[in-house]
């Protein structure tokens, strides 16, 4: 497939993928054959064995650090998406105003 500045061949990608898959399988097959999954995969919190990972960490806890560092942005965004219809209409008017200003002053 030709793109604006280059090309893409899915066959090359798949070939590379198959080769890498084979190498990974080879490395895995060199490992300990007696290994059985068990306690190594279990979860311990303060030395206590816990049941399910998802019981403690729900999806809303994911990316906590990212959300925390963008706290100001998210609090502004939540204010904007507050579900109040008159505020939604406000943004509509703001957009019309911006477009009219741009057009009148010849920006676009």
């Amino acid at each position: 497939m030709e793109t604006y500045a280059g090309f893409w061949h899915v066959e090359w990608f798949l070939t590379a993928f198959i080769i890498l898959f084979f190498i990974t399988w080879l490395i895995k097959s060199l490992g300990d054959k007696k290994y059985k999954s068990g306690i190594q995969e279990d979860i311990f919190l303060s030395g206590h064995q816990e049941k399910e990972y998802s019981d403690y960490i729900g999806s809303e806890n994911l990316y906590w650090g990212f959300k925390e560092s963008l706290r100001r942005y998210y609090s502004l965004m939540k204010k904007m998406h507050n579900g109040i219809i008159s505020e939604y209409i406000f943004w509509f008017y703001i957009s019309i105003l911006i477009v009219l200003t741009f057009i009148t002053f010849g920006v676009i």
Binding site: M80, H81, E87, Y88, W91, F92, I94, S95
Partner: peptide, 11 residues
């Protein structure tokens, strides 16, 4: 834009 839900009229 509003009917297509494009920002800032996507709310």
């Amino acid at each position: 834009f509003l009917k297509s839900g494009i920002a800032p009229m996507h709310m």
